[in-house]
Design a protein around this nucleic acid. Sequence first.
DNA 1: TTGTAGGCGTTATCAG
DNA 2: CTGATAACGCCTACAA
Lengths: 355, 355
Amino acid sequence: VGQVGDGSRSARRPTMTDVAAHAGVSLKTVSRVVNGEPHVSPDLAERVRASIHALGFRRDASARQLAMGAAGRLLGYIQVDAANPFFGAVARGLEEVTLPHGFLVITGSTDADPEREGVLLDALVEARVAGIVVAAAEGGDEILRQELDHGTAIVCVDRLLDGATCDVVTSTNRASTRTAVQHLLDLGHRRIAYLGGTPTVWSAQERRQGYLDALTAAGIGADPGLLIEHVDTSTLAAAATTRLLEHDAPPTAIVAGQDRIGIGLIEALHRHAAQHEVAHIVFDDLPLGGQLEPPVAVVRQDATELGRAAGRLLLQRLDDGTTAPARRIEIPAAFEPRRSASIPPPAIDEPDRSP
Amino acid sequence: VGQVGDGSRSARRPTMTDVAAHAGVSLKTVSRVVNGEPHVSPDLAERVRASIHALGFRRDASARQLAMGAAGRLLGYIQVDAANPFFGAVARGLEEVTLPHGFLVITGSTDADPEREGVLLDALVEARVAGIVVAAAEGGDEILRQELDHGTAIVCVDRLLDGATCDVVTSTNRASTRTAVQHLLDLGHRRIAYLGGTPTVWSAQERRQGYLDALTAAGIGADPGLLIEHVDTSTLAAAATTRLLEHDAPPTAIVAGQDRIGIGLIEALHRHAAQHEVAHIVFDDLPLGGQLEPPVAVVRQDATELGRAAGRLLLQRLDDGTTAPARRIEIPAAFEPRRSASIPPPAIDEPDRSP
DNA sequence: TTGTAGGCGTTATCAG
DNA sequence: CTGATAACGCCTACAA
């Protein structure tokens, strides 16, 4: 099968010089053929191509890049965890727009550890990536800012950089949450609970704000007992849901500000046979294959589109240079109401407690 | 904030020569300091370090690699889809063992398209990756074999290469499936159905074989009506389950040979209120957060460990060279019986039809 | 249409 | 301990 090169010997990769010798032409002629430049006689070109094939020559991108002075065709993507489908989907979107432009993507996971993020950043810069997309860990902003100052092209995804002025792509966390809560208000609900994740995470903050926005706009004070945060696992979410249901004045509707929370919420409602009594809206942060089927609505974030947008932004930045002003893109998290099974709020038996 | 370099100007990255000039030493001295080589007087070293910091110098990995002649610290990982949690988990495991050795990983998705796989392979080789881990697409084997012949270090994950002799890491697909079916047989089940995915996919073939192995060993002929393949989505799995339940002689147990199939299976059983009547065992190909809770058993594949093993194999191959014999590693897919709720087989009302 | 000279940023070799 | 000088593989000029 191995058509040439005998396979076993892994001596040294053939170079253009080798090809030139084999074909009996000059180095430059080989270069021209390899790069598809014009001004090469057909028969010479053919001879060169034959030698390339015979020797199994592959151009060395590093040397090419070194000689051309330009930045290489390598990008970096620093994510929290490659095994997390959300970040995986972002990676997918990123590839999708950058590969066709000839850019390869180096990926690395940080587990949200700023130190690992720093190490990765360092390695990527040494590898001379043309630019970096980063789903930043909480607490690593200082280093990112330094890198930004040194002229590295950086695009943040899913989160803003603390007091920084760099390109960023996020979902419409705040607005979409507000829409969701508004929808419940429109349906007549007044006691709406919110289950949110770690409040130090930027997107969690935004979503909570959206919840509060809607309540404020409706002139309803937020009941502290209905706003539960630090709900980081589906188990915690289930527990929190149970607690809400056993509340003196239980909510008539619950919003889950994240997909994992949604899973726990639905499970708990199911266990309490309350899934047809308590209206609920959950965030779906990734294509979970329709496993999240809340009766009222779902807020669907498009992780892949986040990745695509980040890629486009980065490519644009590479064209414009560091002088162009920072851009900010918000990808709409779709609000999908389900009209089939809207749970009506309970009849108002008692006077509204709000002023 | 920007401690130096004034930020905005993105003129040219400072080189060792620049540092040497700034520090008033020779190029080589800078090189020594950067690489932590000995034989440098402390004060000179300090002066150099100061200049490095002042100029914001970063070593150029390309040039370094070019000068050293050796292969770079870059690896490739060709996956089917970065957004698929299985491949994401593999990527994660791969990183986990290679990053500490100073290797960065370039990832790319193929969507199981051999052509895209070829393009990626090409790009990776040009980028001078030291080695490649590939979750190969069906039909791209010829190109991979060629690359292998040219001396590229390649490790296959989750699938064998057709008639190839390269390092490979897989799960114990066949053995684990056999164990699962055996378990049902031990419980007294005789009519055991199997839902499998696309039979051209290697792992699907293996799992089906494991199913048949167990039946054969028990002296039970495989009922063609109980072996359903091409079940590629959870929807199809649900439909197939329904069909099985409406069968003249429905199975008393069902095995789902893949996680997506398992989701459809469980959903359908639930819908038919048969989840406590039909014993079932499902594959869990990734940490799905315990969403798959079959009553009898689960077969859990460890995708991250697949990635780790692939990484270790690749690093080893890079040490040994291409001459060392190909290795094959099987990562055990854990069989986890649930004793809490084993569904007993029905009493045998009719004589066993098998000879 | 073809070939020659010089340099990209780094490391290795060999003198001081 | 320190420093010139020659590679490494390729590309951009500039000749022939």
